[in-house]
Design a protein around this nucleic acid. Structure first.
Lengths: 227, 227
DNA sequence: CATCCTCAAACTGTCGACACTCGACAGTCG
DNA sequence: CGACTGTCGAGTGTCGACAGTTTGAGGATG
C-alpha cells in the first residue's frame, strides 16, 4: 500500500492487460472454461469490450504462467493437466520448500516466527468459519512465507508459479479439505521444527505434510479424469 | 511450407514474434544492450522492419524469461542483475539438480548413462578445440540431461529458465573457464556417483561442482559490478 | 457408406494510426 | 534564486482493418 505525502492512496491505474489477465484467471479458476477449450481472441475482446491487442497480451501472460498454451496460427487453449504433470508440480514444490526450510532453519528471527505463528492462527480461524477458497489461500500463504523467509527471491517466484498451477488443478477438483482444522494443525510440526532450528526435522515434517496433500490431490485428480 | 507466386519454396516463415525474441535474446547475450537500458518499441520495430505489435509480444516473452522488465507506461528495460540475485539463481539451480540426481539415481538406465558419458566426451572435445560459448552450452547440456532424466518435466522447465539467466550473467562477465578441460573433468564424479546408484555421493559431487562454479561466477560478477 | 474436394466462415498474425501519458526544459512568479 | 507551471517531443496503450490460414460443413465421387 503506497501513499502520497498527503496520505492519499495512489491511484491504481492498472492497464487493461492486467485487468483482463486477472479476469481470465478468475474465470479459469472458477472452471468457466473447460480444459483444452479454444479461446478466441475476438470473442474475448467482444466480451470484455476491448480490442484484441490487450487480450492477446493477457493471454501471453497466462501462457507464461502455464494456464494457457498457444499453437501457432491456432491461438490459445486452456491448459490441460494430467495427473502426472500435477504430480511433477507437487514434487518440485516439495523440493523447493525443503530447500527453503533448510535455509530458514539457520536464520529464523523472532519476527519471522511470530509471523508464521500468526499465519497458522489465521488458518485455524478460516478453518472454522471461512470458505474453501480462503482456506486454500491461507494455506498457500503459510508456505509462501517459508519461501520468502528463506531469503531466496528467485525461489519465491518459482513457488508462485507452481501455486498458480496447483490452484488451477485444485479448484478443478472441487472441494479439497475434508477436515480443514486438522489440515491447519498439520502445519504445527513444521513450525515446531523451525523453533528448534532443526533442518532435518523440518524436512521430515514437510515431507509428511506435503506428501499427504500430494497423494490426496493427485489421486482425486486422477479419479476426476476417469469419471 | 508456403510458396511464393513464382513457386519457389520459401523458408519456413516462423512467427515474427519468435524470430524477434530470438534475435533480441542473441543481442542481449552478446551484450549489445547495457543492463538497465530502455528498449523503445518503435525503434526496435524499425530495426527489424516490422510493426510494433510483434515486438511488444516478443518483449513480453523475454520479460517472462526474466531478461527484460517492464514498467507501466514506460516500456521495457534490460534486466539488471546484482550479485545477490545471481547467487539466488545458483542456489536454486543446485536445489533442483540435487533433487534431479536423487530421482535419477534410482532409475538410471543404460541408455541414460551412455548419453551422459557421450555428453561428457563432447564436453572434453569442445574443451580442446571449441569456443567459450560452445563450452558453456555443452556444459549446460550435461546438466540439463540430469534434469531431463529425472523424469520431472516441470523441473526441466525451471532449469531452463535459470539457465537463461545464468547465460545472461556469464556472458556479461566475459570469459569464464580458465581451464575448460579441467572443468569438464569435474563432471566425472557426478556421473560416477550415478553409476554406483548413490544419491548421497551424487549430491556431494554436485554440491562441490556447482558450489565452485557459483563461487567463481558470483565473485567475478561482483568484481565486474565494482570496476 | 466412406473418402475426398470445395468453399465459406472464423480466426490469427500483422500493420498503421491515434490518444494519452511521461519526462525534460524553458519560462513565470514569488 | 528557487519553486511552480506550461509546453513539447518521445513513447506506450489501444484500436480497427486487412491478409493469409485453419476449420468444418456440405456436396461430389468412388
Amino acid at each position: 500500500m503506497t501513499t502520497t505525502t498527503r496520505g492519499f492512496a495512489t491511484i491504481q491505474q492498472r492497464d487493461l492487460v492486467n485487468q483482463i489477465a486477472d479476469m481470465l484467471t478468475e474465470a479459469l479458476l472458477k472452471g468457466e472454461f473447460a480444459p483444452g477449450v479454444h479461446l478466441a481472441e475476438a470473442q474475448l475482446a467482444r466480451d470484455f469490450g476491448v480490442s484484441r491487442a490487450p487480450v492477446r497480451e493477457a493471454a501471453r501472460l497466462l501462457e507464461s504462467r502455464g494456464m494457457l498454451v498457444s499453437q501457432p496460427r491456432r491461438g490459445f487453449f486452456v491448459r490441460t493437466f494430467n495427473a502426472d504433470e500435477l504430480d511433477d508440480v507437487y514434487d518440485l514444490r516439495l523440493c523447493l520448500e525443503r530447500h527453503a526450510i533448510r535455509l530458514l532453519a539457520g536464520k529464523l528471527t523472532a519476527a519471522m516466527e511470530a509471523a508464521l505463528s500468526h499465519q497458522l492462527e489465521t488458518m485455524r480461524q478460516v478453518a472454522r468459519d471461512g470458505t474453501a477458497v480462503q482456506q486454500i489461500e491461507e494455506d498457500v500463504a503459510f508456505h509462501r512465507m517459508l519461501c520468502e523467509f528463506s531469503g531466496n527471491q528467485r525461489l519465491v517466484r518459482v513457488f508462485d508459479e507452481l501455486c498458480h498451477e496447483m490452484r488451477f488443478c485444485i479448484l478443478l477438483i472441487g472441494q479439497l479439505y475434508d477436515d480443514p482444522l486438522r489440515v491447519a494443525d498439520t502445519h504445527e510440526p513444521i513450525l515446531e521444527a523451525l523453533r528448534t532450528r532443526s533442518p532435518d526435522a523440518g524436512e521430515a515434517a514437510l515431507d509428511y505434510h506435503i506428501g499427504v496433500a500430494q497423494q490426496r490431490v493427485v489421486e482425486m485428480f486422477r479419479e476426476r479424469a476417469k469419471g
